[in-house]
Design a protein around this nucleic acid. Sequence first.
DNA 1: GATTAACAGTTGATTTTGTAACTAACAATG
DNA 2: CATTGTTAGTTACAAAATCAACTGTTAATC
Lengths: 144, 144
Amino acid sequence: MTKKDDFELQNFLPYLLNQAAEESSLAFQNIYKDRYGMLRTEWRVLFHLGIYGRMTAKEICERSKMHKTKISRAVARLEARRFLTRERGADDRRLEYLELTPAGRKAYDELRAVAMDYDAQLAEAFSQEEVAVLRKLLTHLAKL
Amino acid sequence: MTKKDDFELQNFLPYLLNQAAEESSLAFQNIYKDRYGMLRTEWRVLFHLGIYGRMTAKEICERSKMHKTKISRAVARLEARRFLTRERGADDRRLEYLELTPAGRKAYDELRAVAMDYDAQLAEAFSQEEVAVLRKLLTHLAKL
DNA sequence: GATTAACAGTTGATTTTGTAACTAACAATG
DNA sequence: CATTGTTAGTTACAAAATCAACTGTTAATC
């Protein structure tokens, strides 16, 4: 209850990031979960494919830092819903190229709109410059 | 592989936050897990008590947005390690006031140092102003 | 003051995740 | 071209998360 260290809280970046991510995910989740019944892992995979287009699970793994089994299962669920297709690599048959179906892209577009709404709220509370800095640093931290 | 939407990625704040939080947690985890054998939920509870001092599980729940069962179990583990003590509220016996023991505070102090090292790395890559903006906005997003 | 509702926290059942061991495909070395 | 190693992805099992139902306590209403 009594604040002991308030100032220093600002210095705990891993803590702050977790707090902020959890908070935003919950808010975002309230919308997409009811409407799309999609788990966090699933929309993250969907976003990767939507943003970058056709790619393999390995590539999603490297970019997202998600565990490969998590991706494997999210891909299976998204495939079951006909949101993506898999295609074995012609010259390397270990690889599976993933690509959104039209239905998958539609879901992505809708979720993208939700995410952009969420972003728009930020713009109201902060200056353009501040939001730009936030995005720049987050992008760096996420090592995209 | 082919980028389709690169520009728009910057707009997906919930996505970016998750990426950044996951990445930073993994880096942070490599240090604290081996050294302290502590789970993410546990250090988050520890941080709350370290930062704010004595408080109830309910308050941690509200601030952290973590699920109350997660907190309940993290508290039990931290208590088993003698990192905190519980005390029933005198006038409301439903409440349990949690407080770090000296050992708990020691662990917190050490983890805080790790977190601050992590932060220091950021300072090398970005200007003071940028980092300040990042912290300000994350604090706002986390609704502390 | 008895009864019903609300709240703090825990426990148990189910779901999701992580770890490690596996399959299948390719690459490198002898 | 056989053997050994490596890589992409899956699966089995163990750990941890969520959800719902529970205990014990306080507050509200009759």
